[in-house]
Amino acid sequence: MKVALGQFAVQPDWHENLDICFDLIKRAAGKEADLLVLPEGILAQDMADPDLIPKTAQPLDGAFITRLAAETLKYPTLTIAGCLPIPDGKDRFYNTLLVIKNGQIIAQYRKLHLYDAFSHQESRSITAGDSLPPLVEIAGFKVGLMICYDLRFPELARRLVLEGADALILPAAWVKGSGKEAHWDILVKARALENTCYMIAVGECGQRNIGNSMVVDPLGVAIARAGEEPALIMAELFHKRIAHARDILPVLHNRRFLPPKFI
């Protein structure tokens, strides 16, 4: 499977972000990608306006998602994934990861773990999801869905891999701070290595967030990586690499604990 990671700095105006997404879709399709992963919060971001989410959030049939989905009809072999706030019907919002192909939303996941840490409080406007993310079949790979802060909870990644995930995708807006770049690097690699699966982690860049999108293989090797600037990077995933990793490092077979029960 060929994957493209579209790293960019999300703007306050959703029209600008839609144009950026269109460009990344076109470029990823031109490189024959099967999957394009976009960052977290692709609708709108503004460091100076903490209330931007309630001002800009759109429903699934809103203009942003409708036009984004329509754009995928031009590139029938490409699947795209990115997340944005969706109204929950109670004056709050779900941080929702959407997977879109051929003009249709084929999967969605509402973020389970809200970023109430490091002086941030995502729960101020976001409602936590209450369902485990699905697996999505893309180009012969089973892909599990995660969002940003989920990365710090290894039981979610392990659960998805035990259900059959070959790769995990993680759109993120990883906030800059003391040691935060190291946290990102360690955790993305750890989730891949401890589960002998691929990690496809895409971060927003810009003033607030670190970027540093990367693809890590099942033995913890970063096979593609971006810096702090906007970028489109590519990587190719192989079933034989997963099989090799699980043959020489059979941690999934050797484990002694059952997966935790989801409450």
Rank of each mutant, 00 (worst) to 15 (best):
L145P: 14
A139R: 06
G164K: 08
E155V: 07
E137R: 10
A167I: 03
I147W: 02
R159F: 01
C148I: 07
G164E: 09
A172K: 04
E163Q: 15
E163H: 13
K142S: 15
L151E: 11
K176N: 14
L156P: 12
L162K: 09
K142V: 00
I147H: 03
V175S: 09
L160I: 05
R158M: 13
F153H: 14
P171W: 02
E155T: 11
L156A: 10
F141Q: 11
I169T: 03
L151R: 06
R159H: 14
E163W: 10
C148D: 15
W174Y: 06
M146F: 08
D166W: 01
G164I: 11
D166E: 15
A139I: 09
V143N: 03
L162M: 13
E137H: 12
C148Q: 04
K142R: 15
C148G: 10
K176C: 10
E137I: 00
W174F: 08
I169K: 04
G164F: 13
E155L: 07
F141I: 02
R158D: 15
V161C: 13
D150L: 07
V175C: 00
P154G: 05
I147K: 00
L168K: 04
E155S: 14
A139P: 13
L156E: 08
R159D: 15
L145A: 05
D166S: 05
L160A: 06
M146G: 12
G164C: 04
L156N: 12
